[in-house]
Amino acid sequence: MGSHRMRTLRPWLLLAPTLALMAVLLAWPLGRVVWLSLQNYGLRELNRGTTNFVGFDNYVSVLTQPYLWTIVLPNTIGFAVVTVVGTVALGTLVALFLATLPVAWRYLASSAVMVAWAVPAITGTYVWVFLFDAADGLVTHALGGLGVIETGSVNWFLERWSFFGIAALNVVHHGFPFVAVTVLAGLLTVPTELYEAAVIDGAGAWRRFWSVTVPVLKPIFAVVTILSTIWDFKVFAQIFLMPGGSGTNREVFNLGVWSYIQSFAQGRYGLGAAIAVLLTLLLLGITVVYLRTLFVEEDL
């Protein structure tokens, strides 16, 4: 059989199911989101299926709002930076620690770590909200007992910084197991000889980490960082379900929550779609930069 033609065709045959599924279920709907974003679209238009094009009005309206630049964008980016760094750093530390454990203990500990991932995000969020409840939460009782604050006198959900602090704790807690387990898997493949050589060279633990572990595991870090970035930029439930996060406290919106509230709570589907498109473009930009810096040309 024409093996050369087969050789050029085969990758496309292999890719076909994936591409078909993604075209039908992601690309096409995404196209509709873009199409929606060019319209002034409310429940009435949804019901009648009519169109109502307004050009780039929605984008202009979003991009010219000081609210976007002073609140939503800093929230989105700042929160993502903190949670990505937090998730990757904590995950890596945990992986390094797990690698030092005897096998049975490592098995036990990594199982426990995975439980943090298994708890549904909704439930996890409610638990953190309970813990930080201003009147009766564990944290206010603990701090009150230590005399740091008067028990019940501080409501952390009101202030932007503390609100996002709690949300970050929640997101990092839910996200670090993925990083820890992936990095651990990588760590276990690093050839012992590399470490032995480093020890002979007189490298301490810190230097061994940076000169052996990091270079070898660089592709792993690249992947977990990219994926964490994508996920953390889009964080929705963990913000939306916190006190004030569903709309009452406008200082704590991120792009995802803002888009959702414009669409479903206020019936402005066009505007919501425009925000979603901007979020996608932002992520795309960041990812392209990542890919350029993290991967050498041929690695990709």
Binding site: D133, A134, A135, D136, G152, N155, L158, P243
Partner: peptide, 19 residues
């Protein structure tokens, strides 16, 4: 009131009352 109540919903207020 209590500072906590600033972010409470009706549900939360009733939960507090139930205690």
């Amino acid at each position: 009131s209590t500072p906590a109540a600033a972010t409470w919903t009706e549900k939360d207020a009733l939960t507090a009352y139930a205690k």
